[in-house]
Amino acid sequence: MTEENNEPEILFGIYCPPHPHPLLCPEANEGYGKLRSAYEECRKRIEESEADLILIYSTTWPSIVGHQIQALENPVWTHVDDDFHYLGSMPYDFKIDVDFANGYAQAAEKRGLHSRTVAYEGFPIDTGSVVALQLLNPDNRIPACIVSSNMYANRAETIVLGKAARDALAEQGKKAIVVVVASLSNRMFTEHIDEVDDRIHSQKDDDWNQKILEFFGAGRLEDLSQLSRDIHGQIRVNKVVAYKPAWWMAATMGQHNNYTGEVLAYEALHGSGGAVITLTPTDGSFGDKEFDEDDVEFYHGDRNVLDKGML
């Protein structure tokens, strides 16, 4: 934590896509290669940082029973993607910060969330986490922590989950790189394509992606958090109830707009919008908006609306 204000020290944040193409076939399309180069730039910055921990929130690890946190010290397996199995296998051998995983789970419970660690040999670490960790931290120089994305969680729960991450970071005094693994627009082509011909699925998806990138580039993370429901309605396939990564990232990084944002790459991944972006906290400020949607510190669970009236 920083000495002045008991706040956790987050060195910078990374937003990156979950698809395996930059890992498995960066040569298949110029854009995949650019994404791969952006990952490599991030890897270099991580190596040059004094980070103690890489904290990952992955949208391709759905959970149902609360929020699951990977806590096996050395998960080793060979992962294969459900759709892109023909691109190849992804062997992994990761180093997990078990103390932080336990601390995060406890911090989440203190804020009213249901949370648990998972430490099982052979647990299927998701494609997004595997791609991110392989490319950002290939030699396991820095231990990692991976947290799931609960498929039923909405804004309040996700923001509280982010705040619990801050609690745990402050408690353990660890300097962190925060990584969110998510697409921008997530609609893929529903047929097989020649990778050379890859492009964003529609003009509308591209327009929205460009707008989101403008916000990221200006460091306006809290503004993006506030825009999450619009983004979900406009360019997200409704696989889950909401577009949550900006909520979690903003809550974990401090709920403000004071960052230097850098869009290192933005390219199509089988039609979806894949971007590698960094957000580094600064002293400056951007934006002239305030927000009236209530902030939330503690998760109270369901409001039992169904029990309060006759059906």
Binding site: I64, V65, D83, H85, M188, H270
Partner: peptide
């Protein structure tokens, strides 16, 4: 799968299945 319908195409699979949920 989001890109079509896929079929298992090898004669044998042997491993450990761990439920992610």
């Amino acid at each position: 799968t989001y890109i079509g319908t896929h079929f298992l195409g090898l004669p044998n699979f042997k491993s450990k299945s761990v439920d992610p949920i």
